[in-house]
Simulated scan of single mutants.
Amino acid sequence: MLESVTATALSSALDGLSLRQRSIAENVANINTPGYHAKRVAFEDELRAAVADGSGAAPATVERSLEPTRLNGNNVNLDTETLSNIDTVLRYQFATQAMNAQSASVSRAIGQASA
């Protein structure tokens, strides 16, 4: 597909959301692990800046959550993880639909140009 800021930004968003999904799954899997700190994935601010500067490429970063811990030192909150998962799934679906729409537009343009 032809590279554009939009395509690059959507690809970066999908990568970041995929990483967030994996981190949520790991957090939930370790909900009872003593001393485990939840992971948080951030990329939206960097993505916004990358789109503004015209590159669209923004890596996601994984950080340890600074939320309060329980007595066993674990700070995974199932409610937080569930809401984050729902939000992430919806954002991933939206980004996938946008990527598909852009691909269809490029395909139509190429088809019209060759006709």
Rank of each mutant, 00 (worst) to 15 (best):
P59A: 10
L71T: 12
A42H: 10
S84F: 00
L47K: 05
L90C: 00
E81R: 07
L71D: 14
A57W: 14
R91P: 01
L90R: 15
F43G: 09
V62C: 12
V89L: 14
R64G: 05
T69A: 10
A57I: 06
L47W: 07
N85Y: 15
P68C: 10
T88H: 12
R91F: 00
L83W: 03
V62E: 14
E46N: 08
G73A: 06
A52C: 02
T80M: 12
T82D: 01
V89T: 14
T61G: 08
S65E: 02
A58K: 06
R70H: 05
L47C: 07
A52V: 04
L66F: 03
P68M: 09
P59Q: 06
N77E: 14
S84E: 09
T80V: 15
V89R: 12
S84M: 06
E63D: 13
L71F: 15
N72K: 04
G73Q: 10
N77F: 04
S65T: 02
A49F: 02
E67P: 00
L66R: 13
L78R: 12
D79W: 00
V62N: 11
T80W: 11
D87R: 15
S65V: 01
P68R: 11
L47P: 09
T82V: 13
S55G: 13
S84A: 11
T88M: 07
A58G: 04
E63T: 15
A57C: 01
E81Y: 08
L47N: 08
R48K: 14
N72I: 05
P59I: 09
T80S: 09
G73M: 07
V51E: 12
N75A: 05
D53W: 05
N75E: 10
R70N: 08
L71G: 01
